[in-house]
Design a protein around this nucleic acid. Structure first.
Lengths: 340, 340
DNA sequence: AGTATTATCCGAAGCGCTTTGATTGACAAG
DNA sequence: CTTGTCAATCAAAGCGCTTCGGATAATACT
């Protein structure tokens, strides 16, 4: 079923049928109805390759995602993807998850760029010095970064105020009287980890508390490393009395470690987690977290930025900064209690 | 940089350049070298839309994947995807993850089919009566199912011998002397859950042990439901002495429940898990599992099936059945001990 | 010597769609 | 009755690539 068939069937020209279907004004309303009805009835769907060739655009927005073995990715990011997808779809773009070559991620970006498969790209999990963004900028493919990066020229981004989040958490712990506060960070090359740490440090400095090197851990990014890092913290001669955990995945391991040692949260040690735990995690209740309240909305905003970028808007204005919130556990329980 | 530019630059015709790049025999070796060198140098990449339009195929294989909020999917399946991707790529196909519309999954399949975006589709997580497969078969788009289904006509599939796995697990528990054996199944509409249960039941029947309804639970598919199901099992007047857990995600909750009740695995209760726990899970050691030893290989095999299907091979022969293995915890410890 | 092959290469058509520029007919204005 | 205007339609070119069916020159065979 091609446009030509449809035209023949209706006794119309290709041009008219095409225009009728694409909502042009210079076609009689009655004809349009005839055409759309026929298209509906015959189940006509335009050939995307042809359309794309003619139009010079694809209607796809890409997102390169690592599907390596064991790579579960960031659970909360899946929510973002969900919102992103919804808005793109409403605007006749489809979201394509492109699997990242595990050995050479940059290569995946190269291929996507030169193939012209997508009209734009979402770049997630930005690093402070991100070769992917540099590459895209050089190449000229429209992109929106999920997380900021250090880049010479302006570029569109959506980010969370991680610095504020880090500060809020630290301030809360300080106000509870803690002075020996640990911070478990993911890889500090990742922008968000760096930012959260910066906020954390600034709060400590403002309170005249000097952060101790042995309390600052880096590269803590999954259950196991969270478990280990927490273990080693607790075995220090003077262990910290409070911990801020950078990311929710490692927080699971952290909580586990605490629980196994029969420590009581809020009494023996205080913990704040950045990002809500994955929803079906068992230890998810009653714990204070720094949260981006509306991840679905973040995804939607990301899509908006991309759409505006694709419409040719220049990147200068295309920034969205979302504010985190410090969310306490339920008020009827102690602030930092663990309850599986 | 288009083919035409390249041809002009080399003083050759479009035809020759195209053929040189695509490895046709009727082009002199020296010219081919000149052409490929020039292409390399100028960074020429064929326009996929044009190529596709001319060729009538896209070079993409699709996989519709649910990216809903909170939908982490099956962790071990990500490994399969990884192997799949690798082999497809080696054969100049790219794997496209198409995000599933959360409200109406079937709709996503409809769109993919009629858009012609992909040459073939991988269908994962098959159900016993799977409308998606029926649709694809009717439409004629090549597909390979990851898991079998009840379908009138033959179709290509890769599956695991889940029935055998269920039986092996049950037999092991029986041989340990257990008679009150519970089974926690995921949704029985899913093929794998049904198959595992069938194997489980047949082993019990063969041993003259009649399965008790209250020990057979269904719809246990995530940490939380695993936790709850296990809790309710243990509170029965006569609780089971052994449990087979259908899927690894809910197993996490099951183990958690057992641990909280201070029960010792292998002494108070025996557990066998189907599929290895996610690799960074803390409770992953020392527990007996039914495992598909080589998930990466399974992904590769899936790709092979798809490639053969795309080459026009008829579905009759395109079946791969992989054998599960019963893997004990390390021999130095008790078979069913939990060690976080 | 002339003819049949073979090795290389090229022109042009075609994939299904959009879009420019032209054509037709109807109707109002002169 | 002519001319101008506008609405509705169409023919054809073009998007970048592949490929069929020649063309040409070099080589092999009678």
């Amino acid at each position: 079923m091609k446009l030509k068939d449809l035209a023949q069937e209706l006794g119309l020209s290709l041009t008219t049928v095409s225009r009728a279907l694409n909502g042009y004004s210079e076609v009689k309303e009655s004809t349009r109805l005839r055409v759309t009805a026929a298209a509906q009835r015959r189940g006509y769907m335009p050939n995307p390759a042809a359309k794309r060739l003619a139009l010079g655009r694809s209607g796809y927005v890409g997102l390169v995602y690592p599907f390596g073995p064991n790579d579960l990715g960031d659970p909360s990011f899946l929510t973002v993807i969900s919102g992103l997808r919804a808005v793109l779809e409403a605007n006749h773009y489809e979201l394509l998850l492109i699997s990242e070559a595990p050995d050479d991620p940059i290569q995946s970006y190269r291929r996507v760029m030169s193939s012209g498969l997508v009209d734009g790209l979402i770049v997630a999990r930005t690093q402070r010095h991100d070769p992917r963004l540099a590459l895209l900028q050089e190449h000229g493919l429209p992109f929106v970064a999920h997380g900021r990066s250090e880049l010479s020229a302006p570029y569109p981004w959506l980010d969370y105020d991680n610095e504020l989040g880090g500060r809020l958490a630290a301030e809360r712990l300080l106000s509870l009287g803690h002075r020996r506060i640990a911070l478990l960070s993911a890889d500090l090359g990742l922008t968000f980890a760096w930012q959260r740490r910066a906020g954390f440090m600034s709060a400590l400095q403002a309170a005249q508390v000097s952060p101790q090197p042995q309390y600052l851990r880096e590269g803590v990014f999954d259950r196991r490393s969270g478990y280990q890092a927490m273990g080693s913290l607790l075995e220090l001669p003077t262990p910290p009395t409070a911990v801020l955990v950078d990311n929710n995945l490692s927080a699971i391991g952290v909580l586990r470690q605490i629980e196994e040692r029969k420590l009581v949260l809020g009494r023996d040690i205080s913990v704040i987690i950045y990002d809500a735990l994955p929803p079906d995690t068992l230890q998810s209740k009653h714990i204070t977290i720094v949260q981006q309240p509306d991840l679905l909305g973040a995804g939607r905003a990301l899509a908006e930025l991309m759409l505006r970028r694709l419409q040719g808007e220049s990147p200068e204005q295309l920034h969205t900064l979302l504010q985190p919130l410090l969310v306490d556990g339920p008020s009827d329980g102690p602030v930092f209690s663990l309850c599986s």
